[in-house]
């Protein structure tokens, strides 16, 4: 289980394997299967969720969000961190093991 508290700008988030998800009218609908919970994300949340592909770190995601939604990068990073903590707590996202630590 990923600990959302250890999340930092260098963390690399990825979608949990125990979810189901689709885009509906451009917004993500995410089912966390073990919790049997359904979440609908807004446009910004959907983009953040899409970018959780296990290759980008949080800082990289924040840069993309800042560019796409024309907001300050520092502000975007704080918002992305807060949002990812929620997704991690809900079981929709987990942190990928950094490549250097792979066994």
């Amino acid at each position: 289980m990923t600990d959302g508290l250890s999340l930092s700008a260098l963390s690399v988030p990825r979608k949990s394997e125990r979810i189901a998800a689709r885009a509906v009218d451009g917004k993500a609908v995410v089912v966390v299967l073990d919790a049997r919970k359904l979440h609908t994300l807004n446009k910004v949340g959907t983009r953040v969720f899409e970018l959780c592909d296990g290759t980008r770190d949080v800082a990289g995601i924040a840069v993309e969000i800042a560019r796409a939604f024309r907001v300050d990068e520092a502000r975007a990073e704080q918002d992305v961190l807060g949002f990812l903590r929620q997704l991690i707590a809900e079981g929709a996202v987990e942190l990928a093991t950094p490549a250097g630590n792979a066994r």
Binding site: R22, V24, D25, V29, V31, R36, K37, L38, T40
Partner: peptide, 18 residues
């Protein structure tokens, strides 16, 4: 309820979700 939300989303979007 999640089931009702899915029905609503399906109707609004015209997308078959089931």
């Amino acid at each position: 309820r999640a089931e009702d939300l899915i029905v609503l989303l399906g109707k609004q979007s015209g997308q078959s979700l089931n």
